[in-house]
Design a protein around this nucleic acid. Sequence first.
DNA 1: ACAATTAATGTTATAATATAACATTACATT
DNA 2: AATGTAATGTTATATTATAACATTAATTGT
Lengths: 166, 166
Amino acid sequence: MKKNKVISPFKPAAHKHQECLKSAIKNAKARCDVSGLRLTPLRQRVLELVWQSHEPVKAYDVLDELKQGHSSSSAPPTVYRALDFLQEQGLVHKIESLNSYVGCGNPEELHTGQFFICRDCGSVAELDDADISSLIEKKANSFGFKIDNEMVEIKGHCQECRDSEK
Amino acid sequence: MKKNKVISPFKPAAHKHQECLKSAIKNAKARCDVSGLRLTPLRQRVLELVWQSHEPVKAYDVLDELKQGHSSSSAPPTVYRALDFLQEQGLVHKIESLNSYVGCGNPEELHTGQFFICRDCGSVAELDDADISSLIEKKANSFGFKIDNEMVEIKGHCQECRDSEK
DNA sequence: ACAATTAATGTTATAATATAACATTACATT
DNA sequence: AATGTAATGTTATATTATAACATTAATTGT
């Protein structure tokens, strides 16, 4: 159990979320500098909206909030295109089982993580755990399967919610 | 690597699929006998349609085929209700990342399996692998997370397709 | 600086997936 | 047969996502 790399832990309800947000934007800028692609105002805005919380966010909720910002008009492709871009850059992940999107805590190296989703508070923790990945790969190898994408989404109840339920 | 329990292997392209189908129906009847619930003609028909192949099948494709069978009228709820029932009985699994459904090779004991999906032939292999599950559980325990549902969907290329590509 | 090219966004329409709500029919029990 | 429950039928609509084409903004070569 050495390689249990926690990308985003479950955050205590009372943490300073402003810091998460700031760091996410900083990471995004750094990432785009490296890739040479543009973090346009629209893309940055969508990223901020996804990072409003540690809970997965729906595309149409992002869209509704975009529309509030009077500045520019918006339609579904607006948000789906931005989300696609952010996913390609590793800045957000899609949670397939929820049709939702969540910010990535470590976009520095591209990865598909393992997600743990609390059914009570809705929060997500992200791992990029080499033990899990290599075990899955070993199993795949045993029947000649070559992996190109790993999706692991685990539902349950986080420590904080279990504690507060008594 | 002892507990690598293969529920449904990748089937060679030329296997006798009629046997798979027959066995799936037999299993379903047995399962419903145990649970005391009814495998109605509609439910059985939907199960057969899902089992037409080892590839995940879309709800609306099942619906289209149901409509071919002149006997009864059909609408989306018809097929979603049947699929829900079959899922609850462990007779089919939903592949979340494909919005598709696949027959379960071992409905005897309820489980959420691990799915390996070939991007070339579309086929799915299902494991119910205790090594993977227990490793994920161990990781979850390490931060106080209590699992109630595990979802593992792996995309890649199966042995047979890799061989036939040269 | 300008034209040409490419990238990003706007816009309209529609496709694909899924559920709500209520009516009807079939089945099971007395 | 009368009643209650489970299953299915039916209509409408909600939710999620993409296609296709028009316009605007940024970048590049000259």
